[in-house]
Write a protein that binds this DNA or RNA. Structure first.
Length: 191
DNA sequence: CATGGGATTGACT
DNA sequence: GTCAATCCCATGC
């Protein structure tokens, strides 16, 4: 995807990223679940304003924002909206596409549904680390490109794992996909 | 400088 | 269902 793709409104970008392909080296997967975050709502890291941690979020669109969650997992986001606005799309789940044996090795799991269904899982499967923070998704080691064009039905629901602004319906997922994380919450509370 | 809280996962009861 | 692991960094003294 080109940089201007990411400059649009963050929820529109989050929806449009469904079906695109994330690639890192030999491994790649189709995005089946995303969430939008924006500086004007308190669940976003950028809510606190421009700090060392959030600098990437306020930078140019189309970069990767990668941070550590719970001291354990790396989370991959695509920075969205124009430079100066703190917004990003969290990539929450992929359908494994290439390098599946390598993913199995890195994850220590066999089932396809266990490789990339979750934001911490997919970064482990694709070996995406904190050092990728700030990297260009249009030409860096980690890339996002258009996927096999197919009309995907998208379910809109509430975001997962947050304690503030829980009511916003800013989570997007492929309806019925077995590669989406926490499938129960998609089915129970579609918005 | 000390503290506290996560955009989670996996193991265990 | 419960819970620990583990580290970055924002905040407050």
């Amino acid at each position: 995807m080109k940089p201007e793709f990411y400059a649009g409104e963050v929820c529109a970008v989050a929806r449009a990223l469904i079906g695109c392909v994330v690639r890192h080296g030999e491994t790649a997967g189709v995005i089946v679940e995303t969430e939008a975050y924006h500086e004007r709502e308190p669940a976003s890291h950028s809510y606190v304003g421009l700090t060392a941690r959030t600098a990437t979020l306020f930078g140019p669109p189309g970069r990767a924002y990668v941070y550590r969650s719970y001291g354990v997992h790396a989370m991959l986001n695509a920075v969205a909206e124009p430079e100066g606005v703190g917004a990003a799309v969290l990539i929450r789940a992929l359908e494994p596409l290439e390098g599946i044996e390598l993913m199995r090795q890195r994850r220590g799991r066999e089932r396809l549904e266990d490789l990339c269904a979750g934001p911490g899982r997919l970064t482990q499967a694709l070996a995406i680390e904190l050092r990728h923070n700030g990297g260009d998704l249009c030409g860096g080691p980690v890339t996002i490109t258009p996927g096999p064009a197919a009309a995907l039905e998208i379910t809109v629901s509430r975001r997962i794992g947050i304690t503030r602004a829980v009511e916003l319906p800013w989570r997007y997922s492929v309806t019925g996909s077995r590669f989406v994380s926490r499938r129960g919450s998609t089915l129970v509370r579609p918005v």
